[in-house]
Design a protein around this nucleic acid. Structure first.
Lengths: 326, 326
DNA sequence: ACATAATATGTAATCGATTACACAATCATT
DNA sequence: AATGATTGTGTAATCGATTACATATTATGT
């Protein structure tokens, strides 16, 4: 890797001139410009970004810290953030924390130290403690999927309302003993639980049960299995995430229950399988692309103006009615 | 963000002493050590990694460039690489290219300029042209899922063999007019196509058709749809990727064909829906975690010894027989 | 023709760390 | 007590860029 010095030497100019020529702004004569360009081509020179960052104290890189890269919601989101950022000439570094607070902290530190221009993050609950430190650093941050504090920009759907509408749809089908399976770590799950409960209360019903488990496929399976094996099993279930639902769905199938007659099934997100199985599954679909774009846009606004006050963008989840309910 | 200078000043020592103290290696008296530590705590000092990298010309960061972050294969892979790297004290920056050669090139340059310690990449076909440049730079590189050149370390499954076994399984069920739908960009798809063809030839059969399309769900749908609408439609299909298969499967359903009697279905990867639908779908499952770990391990070996000759790890895909075939 | 502005380039400081080298103090050895 | 080894610390160069400032040259306006 050749440096600016070598280019300058080969072109017979100073490094300042090379730098100016590349920045393309101030006065450089056509003659010099050509000689420098020739040297650059000759040496296949690319400026050292690390040195640039040290000097400029900033980069055209965004960080994206997601809690679960395997969740289709987050991977689609990553793609849309990436697309948007690219249009603005930025690159995106994606990091995965698996809902692990320590890991998340490490990546937060890393991003800060790497001087990324801004950060989009789906924060775990644990992060809340270090809020002050984060807020003090001037790193622009937008949270997605979860809102941690009104001092941060945030983009998320109205989870409580979405859960409420989804649950009402289940109630409207006439199911009587409705169970809920929710993640146990995230704010998101909490809000969805609240909506679930509210919908039932509004109809004078009791939840059959409300389980909170780690958000993995096998946890969803065992949670559903245990519900179905107990005496007085539920006749419908609402799941708070795609991964949980994937497991739960298989447990329902394994128990030999026919949808939608014998059992009602509804969940959040719109995983591919919800469209492939028959009857297809009723879901709340998140406007994932829009969430990613809004988050990126908000982030750029803050990058440009660190002082603007935090805004919260609440989007609506879309109820996609399919045949998994009566 | 406070710098080493401020720490040094507060502790009444030189920056060299602070640096030595942090590196924890050479002689620093207990007394000084304590004073410096106090200053560090006081100022909440964290070394600037950008400056460190500029000086040391290397970092403890790995790059992972994937061609499609939405593909469950890659997201699971990302997770396993991440886990492995973390155990060695490394962080991972994931980048997504969407099979776009230009985007890939940008990220390759970026990674080089960012001085990552090493790179794991699922290269698009287009990258082949810039091989020399890559090979010249001393950046350790491991390719996954695809092999570009024997001069690079690579980890992948034996795609041809896997496709051959999968196709043989379809043939064994007695289907007569077997179609194949393959991605049109990747090496991987090519190898799978070769295996598909070989299996049929070995049984003296002709492929009903071999479509090559962009690897997206909707492309899979329209490809399958057009096959089914034509006169003399196939009675079974093999898909080369999960995303294509997701679309193709829905097209089969939409056409009202009953699996496995009226139609046979088989594909690569083991997406969640292949387990959720009934009858469940026969697939080739890749040892994704193992691929990620092997790639990371290989990469670390090369990071430690840049001179070792390239090795190729070929793993086996696992044929998971389910009820989607007679 | 002269003052002023615009253009073109170089010098050197700077970003924040690491480390070779120099030097001083302490310790051990004979 | 003299010598050499060990320990502890500071000075300053270095990594590779950017840019404020100085300076020289050329163009412009009156």
């Amino acid at each position: 890797m050749s440096s600016i010095k070598e280019v300058a030497h080969l072109a017979g100019v100073s490094t300042a001139t090379v730098s100016r020529m590349m920045a393309n702004k101030s006065y450089v004569s056509d003659d010099t410009r050509a000689r420098v360009q020739a040297a650059i081509d000759e040496l296949n020179y690319q400026p050292n970004r690390v040195a640039q960052r040290l000097r400029e104290q900033q980069s055209r890189i965004l960080g994206l810290i997601v809690s679960d890269i395997q969740n289709p919601f987050f991977s689609e989101l990553a793609r849309s953030v990436e697309k948007f950022a690219q249009g603005r000439g930025y690159s995106v570094f994606i990091c995965n924390t698996d809902e692990d607070g320590a890991q998340e902290q490490r990546y937060l530190d890393l991003m800060q130290q790497e001087k990324v221009a801004g950060l989009i993050i789906s924060p775990t609950r644990q992060v809340a403690k270090r809020l002050e430190r984060l807020a003090k650093s001037n790193l622009p941050i937008v949270t997605i999927d979860r809102q941690v504090d009104s001092s941060f920009d945030a983009v998320l759907i109205d989870n409580e309302d979405a859960a409420l509408r989804l649950t009402e749809r289940v109630i409207a089908s006439g199911y009587q003993r409705i169970a809920g399976i929710f993640g146990h770590l995230s704010f998101t799950a909490e809000e969805r639980l609240a909506g679930f409960r509210k919908a039932l209360e509004a109809h004078g019903m009791q939840p059959h049960s409300m389980l909170r488990t780690p958000a993995f496929e096998n946890e969803g399976y065992s949670a559903m299995e245990s519900l179905l094996c107990a005496s007085g099993p539920p006749d419908a279930v609402v799941c708070s995430s795609a991964l949980l639902a994937t497991g739960a769905y298989q447990a329902v199938k394994a128990a030999g229950l026919e949808l939608p007659e014998a059992f009602g099934f509804a969940c959040f997100d719109d995983p591919a399988w919800a469209r492939c199985v028959s009857p297809r599954v009723t879901v709340i679909r998140q406007p994932t692309k829009l969430i990613g774009e809004s988050a990126a846009e908000l982030l750029f606004k803050r990058v440009e103006n660190g002082q603007r006050s935090a805004s919260l963008i609440r989007l609506q989840g879309e109820l996609v009615e399919r045949e998994s309910l009566r």
